[in-house]
């Protein structure tokens, strides 16, 4: 075979997995919160991660984003291990997340929450902030436009100057997604984005997740308790129970999986 061709093939974005969790394990004291987890995401995939309370879903997010270090196993993003990297370095590589217990920047306006997340993409650093030449102004305007565009997609543009803590719950969750998107991720991790939303908001959220995933060609890993949401938009679903992956497959197969049903009934 032509070696050039072969090289081409393996370099193709849809061929290489974006995220590979390889027997990733984390222990807290004696508790194995995540146990030998294998999970792979390709570019542009929308995968659900479900499981009963305390199954270890949020811990998986904390492992991928470097908040926790795996005690054994490995996690690779675009083929390179993220072990030992700090959260901000992993974000710079293209992983962004939202938080189950909303963690917005409480003293900042809606706009500033998004603006702050553009930080890693600034070409101009501290000296430009002080000198304020034309390059600085141009870049600030660019950031402003991009932030406003993102807010508009999520129907938050009219709240631009509001204090983010004054927003209703659902708006705060959507603002967290906007803020995560501002870092221009390749992989977006959503931790229960529909929690606290009413059915209309949930429907709208599903549409928005689909839309942004296609628009920005994102891979999305979605943790969500609302089965209608997960089954409605995910191509593939992985199920965790006590830190162990007990099933993985298409929504239809998961719905009828005996182990999954037991895990949820035993709750």
């Amino acid at each position: 075979m032509d070696p050039k061709m072969a090289g081409h093939e393996t370099e193709g974005p849809r061929m290489n997995p974006l995220l590979e969790m390889d027997r990733a394990t984390v222990e807290f004291g004696g508790l194995r919160a995540v146990s030998e987890l294998d999970l792979t995401l390709r570019q542009g995939e929308l995968v659900g991660l479900i499981g009963p309370n305390g199954a270890g879903k949020t811990t998986v997010f904390n492992l991928i984003t470097g908040v926790y270090q795996p005690t054994s196993g490995d996690i690779r993003f675009e083929g390179r291990s993220v072990a030992g990297r700090k959260p901000y370095q992993i974000t710079a590589r293209g992983v962004a997340r939202t938080f189950q217990n909303i963690r917005l920047f409480g003293s900042l306006s809606v706009f500033d929450n998004v603006r702050a997340a553009f930080n890693i993409h600034l070409h101009h650093g501290i000296s430009h902030a002080l000198w304020r030449g034309p390059g600085f102004d141009r870049e600030e305007r660019e950031v402003e436009t991009m932030a406003e565009e993102l807010l508009e997609i999520f129907h938050l543009d009219h709240l631009r100057d509001a204090e983010c803590t004054a927003l209703p719950y659902g708006d705060q969750r959507r603002l967290e997604i906007v803020r995560a998107l501002a870092t221009r991720p390749k992989l977006l991790l959503l931790d229960e984005p529909a929690a606290g939303m009413n059915p209309t908001e949930k429907g709208e959220l599903m549409r928005l997740i689909r839309f942004t995933q296609e628009k920005f060609d994102l891979a999305v890993l979605l943790v969500e308790h609302d089965m209608r949401v997960v089954m409605g938009i995910c191509e593939r679903i992985a199920v965790l129970d006590y830190g162990v992956k007990i099933a993985e497959g298409a929504p239809e197969a998961i719905r009828n999986d005996r182990k999954v049903i037991e895990a949820y009934l035993g709750e």
């Binding site: 974000t91 920047f105 409480g106 900042l108 890693i120 430009h128 902030a129 870049e139 950031v143 501002a182």
Partner: peptide
């Protein structure tokens, strides 16, 4: 004032507000 009132300088405030979220947004706290 100029440090703080810029996209770059919003980083200071994010570290104050929520360091974990700041790091998750790529900010080297």
């Amino acid at each position: 004032v100029l440090l703080v009132h810029s996209t770059y300088g919003r980083g200071f405030l994010t570290v104050r507000d929520d360091e974990i979220a700041a790091e998750a947004m790529g900010i080297n706290s």
